[in-house]
């Protein structure tokens, strides 16, 4: 294991972790506030990636794809919440799982009909299509640095929103003591719709950012969904700051595993999850038991 190589891997792990955070934060928020386990969250990520692919193919600009993913996410999230999820909060988890699983099938079939089943690569924006040397003999694409920057900015915004604004206070309250929110006369339905739209938007933006890095292909969301669940479980269900730390840990473990122990890499994160569950069943930052 050479030192410059390790440095490059740490950078890879950091970038991977930040992207995972964007997906996992939405997952954990939706679970924390509404108690819904959204299996279709990976499909939302996939939709974001395909939006980036279609927009870049049509208009040649990823910069156009990001605002479109954002607007699309807010619309799609609101419609899904208002039209479907709202009726499932009181139902048991099996019903919710069936609903979200059905959504995966619908989204994948829709993708297949609209775009087909091919594997497409998405070009990096020309402005960022250059490399920055990070070690002797290894360079890092400027686009990857940009993704790191955007993820950090979004994470900061998210934390500001949750910790410092009134809506954020209501969301935290709704996650910890939902009955208190009702007693205070706050319209919980509005909160639910907002949270769902934000979670959906984060997943779509993550997908759009990831498209040039991972290409787009059928069922691409599955792998990201599973690893995001691991992030959520390790971080503690419903905890956004927990999701950030655990996303960074998982990003590093996964990347270093793939690099230095490819045979067991697939297993490493799950072993880590099992260990955390034994040691702290509510996750590293979880409050509920």
């Amino acid at each position: 294991m050479d030192f410059p190589g390790l440095l490059a891997q740490l950078l890879n792990g950091f970038q991977h972790g930040l992207l995972l955070f964007l997906i996992a934060s939405g997952l954990t928020l939706i679970f924390g506030v509404m108690g819904i386990i959204n299996l279709a969250h990976g499909s939302l990520f996939m939709i974001g990636a395909y939006v980036a692919f279609l927009v870049t193919r049509q208009w040649g600009s990823l910069w156009l794809a990001l605002p479109m993913a954002m607007i699309g996410g807010i619309l799609l999230g609101s419609v899904l919440e208002r039209g479907l999820f709202r009726y499932f909060y009181a139902r048991d988890h099996l019903d919710q799982v069936l609903l979200t699983f059905a959504l995966i099938l619908l989204f994948e079939e829709g993708r297949s009909l609209l775009v087909g089943n091919e594997f497409y690569s998405v070009p990096i924006p020309p402005l960022l299509d250059f490399s920055v040397p990070v070690t002797s003999g290894f360079s890092y694409s400027a686009y990857r640095f940009t993704v790191i920057g955007i993820c950090l900015a979004l994470a900061a915004l998210l934390f500001y929103w949750i910790e410092r604004t009134k809506t954020g206070a209501v969301i935290r309250a709704a996650a910890e003591k939902p009955e208190m929110v009702d007693v205070l006369g706050i319209d919980a339905r509005r909160v639910h719709m907002t949270v769902f739209a934000v979670g959906t938007t984060l997943a779509l933006i993550a997908g759009a950012l990831a498209a040039p890095l991972y290409s787009v292909y059928p069922n691409m969301g599955d792998g990201f969904l599973i690893i995001s669940f691991v992030v959520v479980v390790i971080g503690g269900l419903g905890s956004v700051s927990g999701a950030l730390w655990s996303a960074l840990i998982i990003g590093l473990v996964d990347t270093l595993g793939k690099a230095y122990a490819p045979k067991v890499a697939g297993l490493a994160v799950y072993v880590l999850m099992a260990a955390v569950l034994i040691w702290r069943p509510s996750g590293l930052f979880g409050q509920r038991t």
Binding site: M1, D2, P4, G5, A8, Q9, N12, H16, E118, F119, Y120, S121, T135, S136, G137, F138, Y214, S215, Y217, G223, T255, L256, K258, A259
Partner: peptide, 27 residues
């Protein structure tokens, strides 16, 4: 999968004269 970065970052440390690869299509 297309997470090539963890693999690529190792190559400079291997001090090889060439790299052979098989992928097809979009990948």
């Amino acid at each position: 999968q297309t997470t090539f970065q963890p693999l690529l970052a190792q190559i400079p440390g291997l001090n090889v004269d060439a790299v052979g690869a098989f992928f097809a299509g979009g990948a």
